[in-house]
Design a protein around this nucleic acid. Structure first.
Length: 169
DNA sequence: CCCTGATTCGC
DNA sequence: GCGAATCAGG
């Protein structure tokens, strides 16, 4: 049942994952049966190429000059990732507890028992602390995290990296 | 060298 | 329309 075309289903998933910030190769692995090139190609055809793109990619090509492409930089929080686990390995930075996670609205914060499939499971803070809570944001379908934390959670795709067949041409 | 996205172009 | 090949940058 190999699908040769992009079903609405897969396109939808593609959009969701792409907009959540996953890399093309990650999305490709997620969807299966497609290469990252296919994903990128589709993304462009859909016209949702630019998000917080890396300025690097916008480069002058010798083949066909491309007009201006505005580079945008997105400010990154100094602290990223699972701060809960971070505490286990490094001394707390009391001077700088300000991370993106602290921006999670209090009204949205959830305890363990309040989590469900529709809420973001991203742990925030020290699990041993009373301050500990889960993000609780709106989880992406089929993912345990909100768009922001999916981006972080899926960051390392160290394995499952496909090697494109490169004989000769 | 690993990765990233962007673009081109034959199919 | 599709995506491999290629490119260019981090």
């Amino acid at each position: 049942m190999t699908v040769l075309t992009w079903s609405d289903d897969r396109v939808e998933q593609l959009k969701k994952l792409w907009e959540s910030g996953l890399s093309a190769s990650q999305i490709a692995a997620e969807l299966g049966n497609v290469t990252r090139n296919a994903v990128i190609g589709k993304v462009h055809r859909l016209g949702l190429s630019g998000r917080a793109k890396s300025p690097a990619s916008a480069a002058p090509r010798p083949r066909k000059a491309r007009p201006a492409q505005h580079m945008m930089r997105v400010a990154r929080p100094v602290s990223r990732g699972n701060t809960a686990l971070a505490h286990a390995f490094e001394v707390e930075l009391e001077a700088d507890p300000i991370a993106f996670d602290n921006v999670v609205p209090i009204s949205q914060r959830l305890s363990l028992l309040e989590l469900n499939e529709a809420t973001c499971h991203w742990p925030i803070g020290d699990p041993a602390s009373a301050e500990f809570f889960f993000c609780g944001g709106k989880a992406l379908s089929s993912l345990p995290y909100c768009a922001h934390h999916s981006r972080i959670a899926y960051q390392p795709a160290g394995d499952r990296r496909r090697q494109p067949p490169k004989p000769a041409r």
